[in-house]
Design a protein around this nucleic acid. Sequence first.
DNA 1: GATTTTCAATCAAACGATTGATTGAAAAAA
DNA 2: TTTTTTCAATCAATCGTTTGATTGAAAATC
Lengths: 235, 235
Amino acid sequence: MTNSPTPNELREVLASDTPSAKTKRDLIESALYHFGHEGYAGTSTRSIAQTAKANIASIAYHFDGKAGLKRACINFIAMSIGDVMSVVLNRKLSDIEHLSPEDARTKILEMIDRMITFTQTNKRAELVIGFMLKEVLHSPEEVDTLYHLIFEPLMDRVTVLFSRATGQPVASDELKLAIFAMIGQLLYIRLARPLVLKRMGWQAVGPDELAQIKSILHRSINALLDDLSKGSNHA
Amino acid sequence: MTNSPTPNELREVLASDTPSAKTKRDLIESALYHFGHEGYAGTSTRSIAQTAKANIASIAYHFDGKAGLKRACINFIAMSIGDVMSVVLNRKLSDIEHLSPEDARTKILEMIDRMITFTQTNKRAELVIGFMLKEVLHSPEEVDTLYHLIFEPLMDRVTVLFSRATGQPVASDELKLAIFAMIGQLLYIRLARPLVLKRMGWQAVGPDELAQIKSILHRSINALLDDLSKGSNHA
DNA sequence: GATTTTCAATCAAACGATTGATTGAAAAAA
DNA sequence: TTTTTTCAATCAATCGTTTGATTGAAAATC
C-alpha cells in the first residue's frame, strides 16, 4: 500500500494491529504534528521519523515519500472531520429537508457547538487547522480532494439546514455566503488564539473561556439566522 | 542599516531613490511574494534574489540574512495595514469616544467596507494574509511585534466604536469577542477563496462578487450589533 | 513435524542536490 | 579617493531519497 488510501481505506488500515499499521499511524501522527507546527517545507523527513520512532526509509516504504505522507495526512484529516461532523453528514439529505424552522435551527446550533468544542479543545484541532491553512489551501489538487471529500457534502447539508431555518431557497447565494461567514467566525477565533489570549487577558482556553466563546458565537449566528429569515415565508 | 527598521523608519528608507533603497524594496517585494506562496522555510534565498533581480549576497548585506528579511517583511506589513486602517487609527481615542450610536455604527460599517475591499481586491492582500497565517502566528516573538504594533491600537479603537454603537461597556468581554467574530468573517471569506469560488461557481471575485460579499457581511455584522445593543441604554 | 523458501518490514549508511551564509574582488556612487 | 553596493565563487550543513543487508514470521516443500 504505497499509494494514498481513501479516508475509508485509511480507517481500516489504521485500525488493524499489524506492526506496519502502527508504523503508519505513528508516521501520520508525527507528520501531522510537524507539518502543522513547522509547515511542510519546514519539516524534515528525519524529524518525522524520529518523533514516530521509525526509520527514515519507512516513509518511502509506506507512503512513497514525503509528498505521499502529506497526502495520507490530508486523507486522515478528511476522516477525522467526517467523524466530528457525522451528526450532520450521516443524515440523508431527504432526512433534513422537511425539518421545521425551529428544529433546523436547533440542529444548526448543535452543530456549531460541536465544531467549537472540537476546534477549541481537541489536541489535534490546532494541527489540523494549521496544516490545512498552511499547506492545503495553496495547492489546487489538494483543495480538490478536500472540497469533494468533505467540504461539498457537508456544505450541501448545512445549506439545507439554513434553508429550513430561514425560509430562504437552498440555491440562494446569500445563504451560501452566510455559511462561509458562520464558519469563518468559528475558525478564526481558534486560528488567532495567540491574539485572542493576549487580547482577552486569558492564560488558556478552559471551560469558562469555552463557554464565553460559545455564548458570543451563539448570539452572532442566531442574529444572522434571524436576519436571513426576514421577509421569507416559513412553510 | 542592517537591522530591522521600524515601520516608520522603513517607510522613509523605502521612499528614497538611492540604489540601495530600490534593492531593498525589490527584495522585500520578492520575499513577500515567495513567503506568502511557499512559506518561509519553503523559500530559498536564491529564488528571492532572482525574482528581485538582485544578488543573493545582498540579502545578507541589507537585512543581515534571511531571518532579517522576514522581520523587514513583517514591519512592511505593519506599515501597509497601518495605511489601510488609517481611517480608524489616525483618530484619537478621545475623538471617537463620544460618537452617537448611529455615527459609531456608520464608522464601523465604513471600516468593514475598507477591509473587505482591501482583502478581496488588493494584490498584496493574499500574500500578506498568507504570510501572517503561515509564519507569524506560530512565532511568539513575531506575534508580539504584530500585536503591539498593529493589533492592539486598532482593536482599542474598534472596541470603543462597538461600545458606542451598542451601549455595552468598553471593557466587556462580549464586545471583545464579538470583534473577533467580525474580523473572522472578513478574513475567512478571503482566506478560503479557493473554496468560496468552487462553492459559489465563481470564476473570480470581480465587482459583482465583491458587492455580494459586502452585502452579506454587512447584514451579518449589523445583526450582530443589533443583538449586542439589546438591553443596554444608549447614551 | 522439520526444513526451506518467501516476503513484508526495518535498519544504518550513503547518495546527489540544494540550502543559507560567506568571501574577496570588481563595480558604482559619493 | 573613500565608501557603498554588487557579484561570482565557494563553504559546511542539511535536504529527501536510495541502497543493500537483516530481521522474523508466514507459506511452501519435503
